[in-house]
Design a protein around this nucleic acid. Sequence first.
RNA 1: GCGCCCGUAGCUCAGCUGGAUAGAGCGCCGGACUUCGAAUCCGUAGGUCGCAGGUUCGAAUCCUGCCGGGCGCGCCA
Length: 560
Amino acid sequence: MKKIIRQLILDAANKAFENNKLNANEFPEFSIEEPKVDAHGDLSTNFAMVNAKTQKMAPRKIAEILIRYIGNNSPVIEKTEIAGPGFINFFILPAAWYPVLSDIYEKDTAYGFSNMGNGQKVQVEFVSANPTGPLHVGHGRGAIVGDSVASILTACGYDVHKEYYINDAGKQIQTLGLSVFLRCRELDGHSIDFPEDCYQGDYIYDIARELKQEKGDWVFTVSEEKAVAFCAKFAADRMIINIRNVLNTLGIEFDNWYSEQALMDSGKVASVIQKFKDQQLIYEKDDALWFKTEAFGDEKDRVVVRNNGQGTYFASDIAYHQDKLDRGFDRIIDVWGADHHGYIPRIRASITASGKDENQFVVILTQLVNLLRKGVPVSMGKRSGQFITLKEVIDEVGKDAVRFIFLTRHYESPLDFDLEVAKQKTNDNPVYYVQYVHARISSIIKKAQDEKQIGENEITDICFDGKAVARIKEPEEIQLIKHLARYPETIRSSAEYMEPHRMAFYLMDLAADFHAYYNKHRVLTEDPDLTAGRLYLIFAVQKVIRNGLTLLGVSAPDSM
RNA sequence: GCGCCCGUAGCUCAGCUGGAUAGAGCGCCGGACUUCGAAUCCGUAGGUCGCAGGUUCGAAUCCUGCCGGGCGCGCCA
């Protein structure tokens, strides 16, 4: 509809110029939007205001000329008005909205999809938590945001690749191995001295038990060095399986799990360091190797190889991001917790330094999650071992509620996640509000089938029944269709800004319109045409609700 | 001290990237089920958009400076 109006305006403006009513035929960018107040029409444009300067005319004067040239010959316009400082308001004929419905039926699960991305290759890397402990809710937020962004981009014609980067090399893995090894000894009846910087959680015992189950006392028959190394590998593998399982319960699957160890074994880390050395971008100071990140916008230079010869995380990350771009992605998106924001400049610097385009690298920073129960904070702390895991949260409140709550906030806002609120089936917890629309419509359709022998196929065919469609004319019905018409642009803006919460809010609004309509008007009536028209409408609503929930990874139940 | 994020109704949050009279939900109060699912709906009340300047036809939105909260500033990961 916006497209139609935009064309109408441009045609009128050009015609006015040809007739010497306007002074210039260059028209700056103008917007068309839905006014907040019904009295301002269905759509409104600021055309006259933004053109005031180039036309050297008063906005209202421009608006008057334009309206004259728009005239009344468009099949979609009921009337136009000039208002306020120079807005032109368009009132659309109700029947002009009907094609939205047939479009929904035609496209069905692909309604609202676009080719905005034009097949561009995009990689979304998210979660990437160290496999040294269970996921917590903060990881969950990044996981859900990353996954939904990926879905939305896919719907917009991007070729999306989801990846998890496993930090399975380095000191923390050694520490994990030592932790498990010590717990094995403890389980064997030895008294142990368990260092503070080892992983304190009970899950270490679980892994130790599993290891003993599989390998018996083997770890005590070899050197401690060898045993710890084995424990590390064993434990990391277990943790990754555990992490993958938890993510699967959230409906998240990755296209690729990328191992840091494999990256190092491939020699790519060493070769990229050598390359930057050759280019004088890496230099030696105090027995360590430093990357000149400051020259590319970072606060200071960063160490890539410590004076003990060990590479830092940054070294792997440089190679990893080089590798991502080398794999041909047009855009690489990293979803990180906000506590890592200090890392952005150095990664960006490494990309710039390599001669690649830093704009291909985008970071989504999700703010931290405060876990609460009835308003009081639940203490968190990984090292202490006292924390509620993501799995426990999912088990308690359910996947759909967890996902939806995380997606009803802008990811840059800190999030209070209250376990008790998340379990409530009230409007404090809008996932059920939206799902209820879907279930309600399923229920009506079932009833239509049982009592009036109108099945889904018959409803779909109603688009060819002009008599029935013409019966859709209540204000609440037209309102619903207008709302459905906004779905495609909601997907597009969610993708453009990588903000899935826009979709969540859209669905809540649509749900509100539906519930209001439902309470005011009956769908199943004694009048066959009226009934058919309304079934046609609500089935379309249901499709859009389902599509939107799918993009957010939330189920659309037929009953609840 | 420096950097990033946040500050909007009693609470939790939106506000379509500068538009018209700033919106939802929860909570409070009052209503609606013999008819398609009351996990719903309808109505009332609630605001110096943290503060102060600036930019312009127009600012919650952009710029500057403060105030308050969170996070980060390692040859840790």
